[in-house]
Amino acid sequence: MIRMSNISWRFLSVWRRNLIVYRKIWKVNFLVPLLEPAFYILAFGLGFQGLVQGLSYGGKALAYTQFMAPALIAISIMYNSFFETTYASFVRMYYQKTFDGMMTTPLSLEEIILAEIVWGATKATAAAAVMTLVLGLFGFVNFPQGLLIVPLAFLGGLAFGAVGMFFTGITPSIDMFNLPIFLFITPMFLFSGTFFPVSGLPEWAQTAALIFPLYHLVELSRACCLGLVETNPLLSLGYLIVFTLCFLVLGLTTMRRRLIK
């Protein structure tokens, strides 16, 4: 059981530890979000744009790159936080025994795990902010409302960080992360209105897409960048918040079961 008394602001000291490690190679860490959108925009803009005609989203005709750019940010938020709380956290927990060391100090396991998830969200936010600026330079983001990406990235980062931590809590070995990536992350990457509008799919597939947290993150990202949506953004926001809370509890519970014996 999770005890609320075990959660305090002390978790920030663990978050700070991750920040210090991250800063050591911040140039490399920033290179990916800096260049990744440029690659995608170039590839899809130059190579793919001519094949896609007549794309409309939220009742408005859009160039393909315009449609795709906000989704790139959402995908990056998902990858950054999910990979942080799966592979990176697993390495710290299992191979480096970093959590074991922390558990000899006045930190609770809940604080350590919460810090890992919040850290994943922070990393996602940093990447999303850099990408938003780059895409803004290309003219794919309307400012100032495009700045709303920053809080949105943090929420999305918490959501995917928490679900990643849940998988870390139950995975028997680091190789088994392939499974949630193949069954959960990749389908989302493809079918969340990322590379084509969900409204073009059959009815049942549209409904299925609503379950994906990435779908809602992409929707909100488009709302921030373009001011366009195809569903109610408040519902998307609500869904993400509920999803985050559920997996925060699940992540903490499974990690507690795994580590406290």
């Binding site: 002390r10 000291s13 530890r17 490690v21 025994k97 074991d100 060391g101 000899t104 100090t105 006045p106």
Partner: peptide, 18 residues
């Protein structure tokens, strides 16, 4: 359980933070 991502001094300072 030393933190391999940190230097010797940082190991002590970060731990003090905990």
């Amino acid at each position: 359980t030393l933190d391999p991502d940190l230097s010797v001094l940082q190991n002590l300072l970060i731990f003090a933070g905990y």
